Simulated scan of single mutants.
Amino acid sequence: MLTKYFQFLFFTIISICVVSCKDDVLPKPKAYLSLDYPEPRYVPYDKTCGYNFDYNTLGKVVDNGKCNFSIEYPKLKATVYLNYKPVNKNIEALLRDAQKLTYEHVIKADGISEQPYTNKERKAYGMFYEVGGNAASQSQFYLTDSTKHFLVGSVYFYAKPNFDSVLPAAEYIKNDLRALMESLKWK
C-alpha cells in the first residue's frame, strides 16, 4: 500500500514538473513604431489669392474662402490650416496675434523652438515654430512681406495630443510646412 502511495506521489511530482516546465517569461523588448510614408511629391497650388505655394500630393487642399485654405491629410489624421490676412498698417497686431497663437500651447508644451525665416528674393519673412510635448499643434509658422500680405499656418491632429504617438506624422508634416514656406510666392 505504501508503494502505491509513493508511486502516486512520484507520478504526481513528475507530472507537475513536466507541466510547469516552460520557458522563462521575458518582457518584450522596446520597439519603435514603424510607419512608412510615401516620398513627398510637391505640386504648385495657385488660386486668385495674394499668394501661391507648393503642397504635398498626400494632402488635399480645401478652399475655405477669403484666401484661407486647409490641407487635409486623411492618412495621417491631420490638417494644416493656412489663414491669410492683408496688411493694412496693422503688422504689429498681426505679428502679436501669430505669436500669441503659438505661445497659447506653452501650458502643454515641453518647449517651443523659434526658427527665423528670410527669403529676400521672394520678400518672405517669418518664423517657424516647433512645439514639443503634448501640445495641440506641433508646428506653426507665419510669413509676411510686411507691407501687403500676412499668412499663418498651423498643423492639428484629429486625436488627443500624445507626442509619442503623433511624432512620426508630425515630423513628416513639419517637412511639408517647411517646403510650403520655402515655395511661397506673393502676388
Rank of each mutant, 00 (worst) to 15 (best):
K148E: 12
Q138L: 13
Y158A: 14
T12I: 14
R96H: 12
F8L: 15
Y172K: 14
S15D: 07
S137D: 07
A109P: 07
V131H: 00
A136Y: 06
Y125H: 09
G65Y: 10
D176Q: 09
K174C: 04
P40E: 07
F150C: 06
P38S: 10
E104P: 01
F69Y: 14
F53K: 05
K100F: 08
S113P: 01
V131S: 05
C49N: 04
C67S: 05
P38R: 09
Y45L: 11
A159H: 08
L82I: 05
N52F: 03
M127W: 06
K30W: 08
Y73D: 01
S183V: 10
A124F: 00
G111Y: 07
L95H: 05
Y51K: 14
Y55C: 01
E171F: 07
Y84E: 08
V62S: 11
E92K: 03
Y55M: 01
S154N: 13
Q138K: 14
T3I: 06
T147V: 13
V166K: 11
A124E: 01
Q99P: 00
P38G: 12
E72F: 02
N90V: 08
I13Q: 03
A136K: 14
E104H: 14
L94G: 11
I71D: 02
G111N: 13
L180Y: 06
K89W: 00
K100C: 06
V87Q: 01
K174V: 03
T144R: 08
L26P: 10
R96D: 15
F150A: 02
L177Y: 07
R178Y: 11
P44T: 12
F11D: 00
V43Y: 07
K187G: 05
L151T: 08
Y32G: 05
L58E: 06
K108E: 14
D36V: 15
N52G: 10
N56Y: 04
N52I: 04
K60R: 06
P38M: 09
G111V: 00
Q140T: 07
Y156G: 11
S139N: 15
Y5A: 13
E39V: 13
L184V: 11
A78N: 09
S146L: 12
Q140P: 01
E121R: 14
L177S: 08
V155I: 15
K120M: 05
V166G: 01
V80N: 04
I112R: 06
T3G: 04
I13G: 02
N162L: 09
E182C: 02
Q115R: 04
G111L: 10
Y84K: 11
N162Q: 08
G65F: 09
D145Y: 05
D23F: 04
Y125V: 05
A109T: 11
N175A: 12
K77C: 06
C17S: 14
R41W: 00
P168F: 08
A98P: 02
S154R: 12
P168T: 15
Y172R: 10
A124C: 10
I13V: 09
Y84N: 12
K120L: 04
K75H: 07
P168K: 12
A98C: 10
K120I: 03
D164A: 08
Y172G: 05
K30E: 00
Y37A: 07
Y55A: 02
L167W: 11
N88V: 14
K60E: 09
N175C: 00
A93M: 05
F6K: 12
I107G: 01
L180S: 06
K108W: 12
